[in-house]
Design a protein around this nucleic acid. Structure first.
Lengths: 260, 260
DNA sequence: GACTTAGTTTCACATAATGGAACCTAAAGG
DNA sequence: CCTTTAGGTTCCATTATGTGAAACTAAGTC
């Protein structure tokens, strides 16, 4: 939530956006001033610029700032541009229909898991209300699936900077346990979440890999211990892997259409 | 598509994002260099910064840049922060179910219409694939509904800078015709789109207004001339207005909960 | 009418962005 | 095999841009 102090002015501006995003509702100038430790004038100009650029919107009645419409436009493009999300859409639909379970599509975002899309057993797409969330990598099915297939150096870095929090009694809470688990995952080709993040919630996840074995995402089928056993979920593993492979294939052919 | 040359570095950086967004698929450095007229080194650093900040993602295999995940996170927050979209969601569902027609939720974005959410008669939410688009204000139902309730000065400005393009034979193509139409809309409380933007497409739209009559969005029921007549659509007007009023009420109470 | 509190502007100053040019590659051409 | 070209990256003197303390204004309080 605090300033990352990244690259120059642009970094600061994006910082401000993050702060506004973090609050989750329209903020007054002063609120931001309190959160950010930028001097008043600096923050002021930053906000002015962002507002001017359409990244923030200003409500003159209430004197509040909120994230602007330009973001929505950009995000729309991001979604469309992403090789993964739009391609995966119909596959997620199928998988959700077949399994009757909750489906997650995730990508790696700087050491964390970003849920990119979701299908809910009961309700249809909840884009933007459920997707877009981030979560820890080391204790979610999709997170572990992606970690397991990271190149060694990237994995090492990811593990080193990871801080472990025991969400439940099952959470893997040391680098060693995690590494052992990742090896096992690589071995069998799919990951489980055995109530490691939330009690009662289990899942089976597979990585989505390019031909060169680069991780571009992960796919999971999630359920509750009440509804489904881990063994039942594992019986789906083949089907999930198949789906992941199809998505990967299509993503690649779409993304690199020019090659012979 | 070309550089807007706005405020300083941040403006340029956002410009770059727009350019990447405009292409709609991963771009190489050179592609951008051709589009932007920034010097090589400048653009390079800009891109580096954006990549570093997670606003762009870099594919080292293909040496291409795409819009980054941070954008998705921010957009998620924008959606949640928006007083309108998340609140309107269930109402859109209801309206879609009742009418069996396509429903649009729109907001004003700097003189243009931004579609924020959509329900399709047949298919469920298509968030991000359909919403997020922008369109002209003067020849869409939602656009005119919002224009009609703008304060006089803002309206005047909006009309002045508007350039009129005749999309169909029915498009209102002069400021005068538009003004007359807007008065009529204000009079009856709802707007029509009489195939003004796309042939065969008609709609009935109402503005979403705060207690102080500020426009915060618009809501429309869209159909085709083949399916539905304008009169039939108008018969829904009361129902749509009612929905708009409920959305407005909830948006306000949520946004300004502190008042007595 | 003095006294906070919130937002906006100023201006001397220094950082951070600029961009021409040089420098790396790696692949294409002779 | 050596050259050329094109794509990509780094340098560095120059200066435009952004900085932030402080001054200022406009509303609320007491």
């Amino acid at each position: 939530m605090s300033a990352e102090q990244g690259d120059g002015t642009v970094g600061k501006a994006l910082d401000v956006l993050d702060m506004v995003a973090a609050v989750g509702k329209p903020v007054r100038f002063t609120d931001l001033l309190a959160t950010a430790d930028y001097p008043k004038a600096t923050l002021y100009r930053l906000i002015q610029t962002l507002t001017h650029q359409g990244m923030l919107s200003y409500d003159p009645d209430r004197q509040t700032y909120a994230l602007g419409v330009r973001l929505v436009r950009l995000a729309h493009a991001a979604w469309a541009t992403s090789s993964l999300a739009p391609i995966a859409r119909p596959y997620l639909d199928d998988l959700a229909r077949e399994t009757g379970e909750t489906i997650h599509l995730a990508q790696m975002d700087n050491g964390q898991v970003l849920y990119v899309d979701k299908r809910n057993a009961s309700r249809p797409v909840e884009m933007f209300s459920q997707a877009g969330k981030v979560g820890p990598a080391y204790c979610t099915g999709v997170g572990k699936a992606m970690l397991a297939y990271l190149p060694d150096d990237a994995l090492e870095r990811a593990i080193q900077r990871q801080s472990f929090h025991r969400f439940t009694g099952h959470t893997l809470d040391t680098p060693e346990k995690l590494k052992a688990e990742l090896l096992a995952i690589r071995d069998r080709g799919h990951a489980f979440d055995r109530e490691e993040h939330e009690p009662g919630i289990i899942c089976c996840a597979v990585p989505i890999l390019t031909r060169t074995d680069r991780v571009i995402g992960a796919l999971s089928v999630t359920s509750t211990t009440a509804r489904t056993s881990l063994a039942e979920l594992e019986s789906r593993a083949g089907r999930i892997k198949d789906t992941a492979a199809r998505i990967a294939a299509e993503a690649e052919s779409w993304r690199f259409p020019e090659q012979a």
